[in-house]
Amino acid sequence: MLEARLEQSSVLKKVVDAIKDLVQDCNFDCNDSGIQLQAMDNSHVALVAMHLKTEGFALYRCDRNIALGINLVSLQKVLRAAQNEDVMTLKAEDSPDALSLVFENSENDRISEYDLKLMDIDQEHLGIPETEYGATVKMPSAEFQRICRDLSLLSESVAIEATKEGIKFSCTGDIGKGAVTLRQNPNVEKPELGTTIELQEPVALTFSLKYLVNFCKASGLSNTVTISLSNEVPLLIEYEMEHGYVRFYLAPKIGD
């Protein structure tokens, strides 16, 4: 059986908020390393991989591998009943029909108990190869979100170029064009506000802004985001949590 307790419900609430517009139904794979999820969007253009590691739980017990087939819209309805500061306990049997969720407030005078029906989801897992990326950019997640939103108002696609000059996001649309260039600017006192760029080789790729804007819904998970790019492979966008991560992969647009 599974029994997993989070000190703060906000952790799972934010994870579900981050991915629910990308995938609808997915398996939460529970095993002795924690709770993991891997799912593609309907069009198979983007992939999300999530890991909540056991260290992040106040209590974690999972005797054998359990796949919780969850509709994320339904899960979000139940999670609305949890306050951010509530302690959340997840429980499931070995072959569960339902996931039990218990929310307790810090004063210990309210206990909310919910059951979420589970579904059988036949989901294939993809092997994600270890990749030495040509360029890796770490920057404030809020700034990345702003750039994606601003450019998405002009165009469907963004060209991302990483050179020794910096990283340039540019787009062209019906009403005009726009570009934002970021230069390396580490912040010694507040590293989360700085921008660092590691460049092995110049990279130039084109991506759909619709997906990037969607990924930015994970900005609440972390003050910083890491963007990893290599020519002609999917881009990796990672939001790192204290004990886990949410990673998004996006296939590029490539000339015929």
Partner: peptide
């Protein structure tokens, strides 16, 4: 003209 690729054309099923 560019064409949107799919993730499965890069990552193989396990």
């Amino acid at each position: 003209p560019t064409k949107q690729r799919t993730i499965s054309s890069f990552f193989a099923p396990k």
